[in-house]
Simulated scan of single mutants.
Amino acid sequence: MSMTGQEMDNLFEKQSFWRNLSLFDWGWAGALILATAYVLQQYAAQMDVYELGILIGTTLSIIAWGWFWKPVRAYIVFVTLISLFSIYLYGNNLALGETNFFLKFLISSKSAIMWMSALYVLATVAYFIGLIIGSEFTNKTASAMTWSATVMGFVGLLVRWRESYLVHVDIGHFPVSNLYEVFILFSIITALLYLYYEGKSKTYTMGGFVLLVISAAVAFLLWYGFGSRGASEIQPLVPALQSYWMKIHVPANFVGYGAFALAAMLGVAYLIKDSMVKAGRNGAIINRFPDLDILDDVMYKSIALGFAFFTLATILGAMWAAEAWGGYWSWDPKETWALIVWLNYAAWLHLRLTKGWRGRPLAWWSVVGLFVTLFAFIGVNMFLSGLHSYGEL
């Protein structure tokens, strides 16, 4: 049976992909496989079949991620080395976090998260300075600070994971269990998504707008985590969260949230530039904004990516609910608002793909969509109660 021209093209593309993998690509895969084999040798007896599946799936995903986006390899290496150094310094004594210089001021979970927070705010300022004065050096400095902040944020989460076990083995848990932890996760994911599109579009001038929403998350994090609430302190998991589902449902959800936030801030940039151009105010600063076509394209790609992950997270959440509460869907306020968010972005993508909508209307929609998403993320916890009330403010 002969193949069609399209099938031959697809086969050729697949063969070309494998042929184009370099020695470094295979070395990357080999190093991760060896690291996973070591983890399995040390801890497989303490892991159930689901956790083994998550570990292997994560390894394969990171291998593919590093093949697809090569800059992330250095990021993962830095995060791994710093996290392991912090864990080594702790040993089995959590109290060293208050006496060891490196832990106290640099790489305990709280210190790393404070560095993350400071660097994100400084990067936001630097991006806007770079936009205003047109300085390539300032823009590159802002990008480097964003990378550094994202390293420290991920280090903070991984070290916090270890710290939770040092508090007590029964308290140890994957660090995405409360608003303090997930706001760190949100900041990291949104920054990584932005850095990917920054590299692909080869423009730094989107940075200030995207970093604004991350700085807002940092402000909330500092208020919520280090105030009188004591949310930064490690607490035992509530029974509803004591499940392997949390390790996959929550991260998938926050890829969606991060992508939607990124699209909304690019929508803001689009509306500002479009309004200024139509008003005839084509000053130097406006001319340094990204092209409207770039903003429109990245906004679309972000929402498409976010929608895919949010759909996956919703399916995983339904499966978790069936296991925990005996039913896939209960019209809990959190579930209902998740459905509203899903329908909102499904309609956005439908109008773009089938009706040819572009530009200003969808930019406005992406901005409004952020407020819908924000209510689903935080507002439900503040004003409504239900099965997900363990996440309330």
Rank of each mutant, 00 (worst) to 15 (best):
L94A: 10
V77S: 04
E98K: 13
E98A: 14
I82E: 01
T80D: 05
K104A: 04
L89R: 01
I87V: 15
S117K: 09
F105C: 05
S109P: 13
T80Y: 02
A95S: 13
L106N: 06
V121P: 07
I87K: 13
L81W: 07
Y90L: 01
F101I: 00
W115C: 10
I82T: 08
F102E: 03
Y120H: 14
L103Q: 12
S108C: 07
S86H: 12
L96P: 11
L106Q: 08
F102P: 02
T80P: 05
A112L: 04
I87T: 09
Y90A: 07
Y88T: 12
L96E: 14
N93Y: 07
G97A: 09
T99V: 11
A112W: 04
M116R: 06
F78H: 08
L81H: 08
L81Y: 06
V77G: 03
S111V: 05
I82F: 04
K110Q: 08
A118E: 03
L103I: 03
I76G: 06
L103V: 03
N93E: 11
F102I: 05
G91C: 07
M116C: 12
S108E: 06
S86D: 06
I107F: 12
T99Q: 12
N100W: 00
Y120V: 06
Y90Q: 05
N100T: 05
E98Q: 14
Y88D: 11
L84A: 13
F85Q: 09
F102H: 03
L89M: 03
A95K: 05
V79K: 07
S108W: 01
I87P: 05
V77C: 02
S109V: 04
K110I: 13
K110F: 06
M114A: 13
L122R: 02
F105Y: 15
V79H: 03
F85W: 12
G91S: 09
N92R: 12
Y88I: 07
L81T: 13
L119Y: 06
I87E: 13
F101N: 04
L106T: 12
K104W: 00
A95F: 03
L96F: 14
I113R: 00
L96N: 09
G91E: 11
I76D: 01
Y90I: 01
S86G: 15
I107P: 00
V77T: 10
F78A: 15
G91K: 09
S117A: 15
S83L: 04
L106E: 04
V77L: 13
A118D: 07
T99Y: 11
I76P: 04
V77D: 00
L103G: 01
F101C: 00
A95L: 11
F101K: 05
A118F: 13
N93V: 05
L81D: 07
L119A: 13
V79I: 15
I82H: 00
F85C: 08
G91H: 13
A112T: 03
L94Y: 11
S109G: 03
L89E: 00
G97T: 03
L96K: 15
F101M: 10
G97F: 02
L81P: 11
N100F: 00
S86F: 02
V77K: 06
A118C: 09
L96M: 14
M116W: 10
S108F: 03
G97C: 02
S109F: 00
L81Q: 08
F105K: 07
L84G: 08
I82G: 02
S86M: 05
L119D: 10
S111L: 00
I113H: 01
I113A: 02
